[in-house]
Design a protein around this nucleic acid. Structure first.
Lengths: 336, 336
DNA sequence: CTGTTAGCGCTTTCAC
DNA sequence: GTGAAAGCGCTAACAG
């Protein structure tokens, strides 16, 4: 193995000088620098990150903690994060919590253990407060993405949830839908609550009744839409929603499957819209009408914000809210 | 910051004993172990990975180098890899090469620099031989996934490419298609060649002509299917393929878009099948008929194999070939 | 079963 | 501009 001392000897300088060169220190004579660079090339020297990290305290490692990279929304975030991290000389470690706060906390411990320079966190639930306390305790800079946590004032990049619900609602309303159901996630997820609240607000605004039997709640990882489908089918025609607004793409897909199993057809018997495109790229063949959030930008800007935080740990928290876009496809039937 | 010495002092033992405890050494008295564990808990001690790595040479870090995590095929691999890595106490750093070998080599250098315990590599092209030489030189265990590299005898987990092409071909043939075009990737990708070869073999076997104008080649990242669509449309009816076999999911999606722009309809005017499901989860609304490779297993088994390699660096290379499954959907029109 | 000593490869700090 | 000394937090190798 070739170390900094081998390079130093070869270039007839001290190890310290080599260190300065690989760290782009400016206080170095051009000629020595050149000499060192040459020695590095000749010996094919690659610095040892563990050693650097041990003495300098930075690792050039970022942690990306999301719930499930399989969901194109999070995949997009991951891609955006990696791109920006790479541009800035960082690498990213990713972890899936599956909406499980205990797993999340383990990952945060790992981040502490590795001395990661920062964490990009999509908190699993309100209980993520635990993870955040750990982060705070060890002074690890972090940025919340996609979801906030109550009582936590931290940097964040989130979607315009209310605006997105509005787009969805107006689309349905515009197509004549009045009885609109909600397929929602766990209540402990900030996101879910905001979306649900806006749904109720819109319904009220139009003086539309919200039948409690129209509100369905499901886990995000363990999706149980079968019961929702059964209930929907068994509702008397006049009380049955003509459309469902799902707060999550995979939930919507799952519901369609469950409805099919019940002999109900989308959009023939019931229309469906949801958050986030289940397709990772533009797709003419896609079926679901969705509000697509700019996942890539969540990740890209998240890392950007994280590095600003690393630079200036004391600045006031910033918040970035990104708008969603309606993609009209074929899962909504016009009632007009 | 709390170090191993703080714990040692608190537990009235030496640092070494603490070290043994956190490393699950068996040669420790139960009572001392308990004492140490308690001190660890009281002080909320979290070991410093950089320090451990510097002296022990292992990092519990794995590198996953793929071309684009955005593609559900690679997303699945990533998820499988992370799951298995997590089970075994490792974390994974992911990197996207965008089919660019230079970028890939940079990432391999980073892996060396970080002393990663192993690398899971989906080589961008035959030129990836460079990256592999680096890996060899620094004795970093690695496993090839999805793609092989000529003249490299290394562990690998790949799909049954020939079998998958056969499934696709037989599906088309069974539905009466005789003029079948090929939309393929860059020739420098091992995968692509195997698939193309099998396509020709099948066509020959059925004594079907392969018109050179039916072979289209596109970049995987920069997809140029517009020209293919134009050519297809301009071909005289009798010489125009009735179906296209695409070797990549995103290529297929892109072609559909391009054909649409040319006023051609899928599957009305032309049928399309391809490799790998563009949907990350089971999706009843999906349009494309595909052969789906078990992406998750690629990643899961890849990590498994990698760790065996780490354990026994000298064993003979193993190769795992995973079968694909035909998912029949709506992109093929029956001609019978 | 437990402790001591040395050192992993780098950077910090302070001289010069 | 450059170098020497010390040490980051841990574990290998040995001793007992």
């Amino acid at each position: 193995l070739v170390t900094i001392y081998d390079v130093a000897k070869r270039a007839n300088v001290s190890a310290m000088t080599v260190s300065r060169v690989i760290n782009n220190s400016t206080l170095i004579k051009e000629t020595t620098k050149r000499k060192v660079l040459e020695a590095i090339r000749e010996l094919d020297y690659i610095p040892n990150r563990s050693a650097r990290s041990l003495s300098s305290k930075d690792t050039k490692l970022l942690s990306l903690i999301i719930t499930d990279i399989t969901n194109p929304f999070f995949t997009g975030i991951a891609r955006g994060a990696e791109d920006r991290a790479n541009e800035l000389g960082y690498q990213v470690v990713f972890s899936n919590t599956d909406e499980n706060v205990d797993k999340e906390t383990d990952y945060v411990r790992a981040a502490v253990s590795r001395g990661m320079d920062g964490v990009l966190l999509a908190p699993a639930a309100d209980r993520s407060l635990e993870s955040i306390r750990l982060l705070d305790k060890y002074r690890i800079p972090f940025v919340l993405i996609d979801r906030e946590v109550p009582a936590v004032a931290a940097d964040s990049v989130v979607g315009d949830n209310a605006g997105a619900v509005r787009l969805l609602f107006e689309h349905l309303f515009g197509h004549g839908h009045r009885r609109i159901a909600l397929l929602s996630g766990p209540e402990q997820v900030w996101n879910t609550r905001v979306r649900e609240k806006e749904y109720r607000k819109r319904m009220n605004e139009q003086s539309l009744p919200v039948d409690p039997r129209w509100i369905f709640r499901s886990g995000l990882t363990h999706r149980n839409t079968a019961e929702a489908a059964r209930i929907l089918r068994n509702l008397p025609e006049a009380e049955r929603p003509t459309a469902v607004l799902a707060t999550n793409n995979f939930l919507a897909l799952s519901l369609i499957q469950s409805l099919k199993a019940q002999g109900m057809n989308v959009p023939g018997d019931i229309s469906i819209v949801c958050f986030d495109d289940p397709s990772p790229i533009p797709d003419d063949t896609a079926f679901l009408t969705v509000v697509a959030q700019p996942a890539y930008d969540f990740g890209y800007n998240g890392v950007q914000m994280l590095l600003q935080r690393i630079d200036e740990p004391e600045r006031a928290p910033s918040h970035l809210v990104l708008p969603a876009k309606l993609l009209t496809r074929r899962s909504v039937r016009s009632l007009i």
